[in-house]
Design a protein around this nucleic acid. Structure first.
Lengths: 237, 237
DNA sequence: TTGACACTTCAACAAGCGTTGAATCTAATC
DNA sequence: GATTAGATTCAACGCTTGTTGAAGTGTCAA
């Protein structure tokens, strides 16, 4: 079992040194990215403890020592992977939420629009030609459902965003108790995680009527499904 | 990364030898259970690769070698943990489904009743004084969301049951395309997994308005929530 | 040309891993 | 009491792990 450290240290003081010498050479920058890509892919399928730095280095086509040189201890590499795309994604989702709210102002948007803002940026990322986003989402699924990583890591990278969305959901149902809002969000979050995980299980169960990597089909149904659930629980009657 | 072996072998031919000499001594039987309990707990929180046999043995209060003696390789111990409670649970859920169907015959039961049959046996298990069931459910959450274990292990232990339930759901909505039924089941399964995982995240997000181990509250809301979702997607108009 | 410095490789480290052979213990059977 | 066989312990195996110090390479500035 890996312990979750509070702070990280690396061989060189990555952030600062990088900036001091102007910018990193394009060659080394590309290697950094390749390490992150490889780590992303392997962590996503096998988890933190199921992957060795040597496997990551091999997939990235670099020496093992380079992983430590660039990112410090294994845990810090893990954190760097989570951070890289997290910031981009969170901005896209927040922008989508802001648009939805602006559109309906001064009234709150429909719950469908809020859920859509939460999901669609993922779909765009996942359907892109770059496999990296799919790996990243699968990694999030792993972390989100893990008792060990869930609190520390997901909280660290996603709490701010999630609070924006739960607040928006609350505005959709101003009379609903916060408890209900959070349990409904919980249902959405869980279904989303399983979709991310892309386990291929729905393919087998449905005898290929559904494909687990068909994210568009998943979200097309998930949005009205979850909206109906929210209304049932939070709609109040 | 661990490979998922097709078949398992142990030092002694566990099943058969056990039976031959009449029954195992109560002392050794108790130790077997303690090993399974410890493995269940640790696997649930840290995953297959995040736990060592030495940690399991220590928690169980036995020698490391005993884990191999009783269960063979690590992977077979993992499988034994999944099997132990899986059979009990699946029977309870199937019984609940059969009761619901008998009650409404010759009509199909409401989707609420089907979902209830899927969830409530878990609640009973999880709310019992024995922490073992909670650990087991958390382990299922881990396995269900894992691309590596999801297909092999969950399929092996749960496919038969899940097919019973998806078939029952289809009978609730005979006009709905199978595709829709399976995506709806997928949403239910994902939300359930996250509940199992008991990550404590909802506690933090909701500032303790919700507790992640309050399974009754979770299911009380999950049943109408998911039923409304099913109706929205599969209800047809 | 020389120096400096980021980058990269190589080899090794101590620690821990899953697993197993051999020895010892325990308890029931003859 | 001797025999037998399962249960248990102990010590060790070969191997892999994350990490690092030291040496080497490349490149740009002085």
């Amino acid at each position: 079992m890996a312990e979750v450290a509070e702070d990280f240290s690396s061989r060189k003081d990555a952030e600062t040194t990088q900036g001091k010498a102007g910018e990193a050479s394009p060659k080394s920058q590309e290697r950094r990215e390749r390490i992150l890509d490889a780590a992303e892919e392997l962590f996503a399928t096998s988890g933190f403890d199921g992957v060795t730095l040597r496997q990551i280095a091999k997939l990235a086509g670099v020496d093992v020592a380079l992983t430590s040189y660039y990112f410090g201890p294994k845990l810090q590499l893990f954190d760097a992977v989570l951070k890289r795309r997290g910031e981009i994604l969170n901005r896209a989702r927040l922008d989508a939420l802001r648009s939805a709210e602006a559109e309906s102002a001064p009234n709150p948007p429909s719950i469908e629009r809020v859920i859509e803002a939460f999901l669609r940026p993922l779909e765009i990322a996942q359907e892109s030609e770059d496999r990296g986003w799919r790996n990243y989402c699968a990694l999030i699924a792993y972390v989100n459902n893990s008792p060990v990583w869930g609190k520390k890591m997901i909280g660290k990278h996603f709490d701010k965003l999630v609070r924006e969305f739960t607040a928006a959901m609350q505005r959709c149902f101003p009379e609903a108790p916060a408890r209900d809002i959070f349990w409904c969000y919980h249902n959405l979050s869980g279904a989303l995680s399983l979709t991310f995980a892309d386990t291929g299980r729905i393919d087998i169960l449905s005898e290929n009527a559904c494909q687990s990597h068909d994210f568009k089909s998943a979200y097309d149904r998930m949005i009205p499904f979850m909206a109906a659930g929210f209304r049932e629980i939070c709609g109040g009657h």
